[in-house]
Amino acid sequence: MTPDPKPGNEAGRQPVRWLTDPFAALGRKAINWVNNLGAATIFLSLGVLRIFRPKQLMKVLEQLYLIGAGSVPIIMLVGLFTGMVLGLQSYHALVKFGSQGALGTLVALSLIRELGPVLTAIMITARAGSAITAEIGSQRISEQIDALGTMRIDPLRYLISPRVAASIISFPLLTAIFDVVGIVGGYISGVLLLGVNAGTYLYRVESSVDMKDVTDGFVKAIVFAVIVTTVCCYQGYFAHMRSDSYGARAIGRSTTAAVVISCVLILIADYIVTSLLI
């Protein structure tokens, strides 16, 4: 039998716990984070492997429509105004140095190398990523994912793989649309509204952009596609495992977490990929 702790001993331990508790909590968070990272990596790997199973084509096409085609209008709208703002701001900066002729170069390189992939990924996260988390989370909470298992349908193959494949295909395409529309936006504000020579603008765009800029932008888009799909699917798939909430609230929190984590990871990954590619 364990003797009752003496009050004096308890009091003696207090300062030690006061000192160690924050580190213990930090340690628990770190272990939890590493666990989640490992689980998400396995989750993604299994999802990718199952892309190549039979009967996946129609599901991939359906997701391409939802994630890709469905996002085109919003991507074009955001791309247009991003290009216009970029043209406007850059013109006023360049005109101080008498270099407004370089507007095409600045707009095109900024969009193709940075803004295109990053803003496209963030917009898809907001539009399609949140929907993925909410849909899969809702299926999890209402036992639809368990039902798939009981019907001998692999939930990862049925739900996750088509989304991963569709994202990897659609992110670069949407980025390309964003870039083109953004350059048109820069043309509208720089050439049509502020009077930069049209020929100069288009010549600078054409001469300053290398194929490497385009492929680097696509590499980033693919990296972001993997991040966004993994985070959004993972958050929805394990919505029932949340320790802070249950049911509909768990779906809400998972969706919020998916969008926030995706956006943060996009920006972190952007820096890492840029430093590797540059």
Binding site: E135, Q139, S142, E143, Q144, D146, A147, T150, M151
Partner: peptide
């Protein structure tokens, strides 16, 4: 095996 869930678990979409 097949399983019929208490809450039906039908695909609502």
């Amino acid at each position: 095996m097949s399983y019929m869930f208490q809450g039906n678990a039908l695909f609502d979409s």
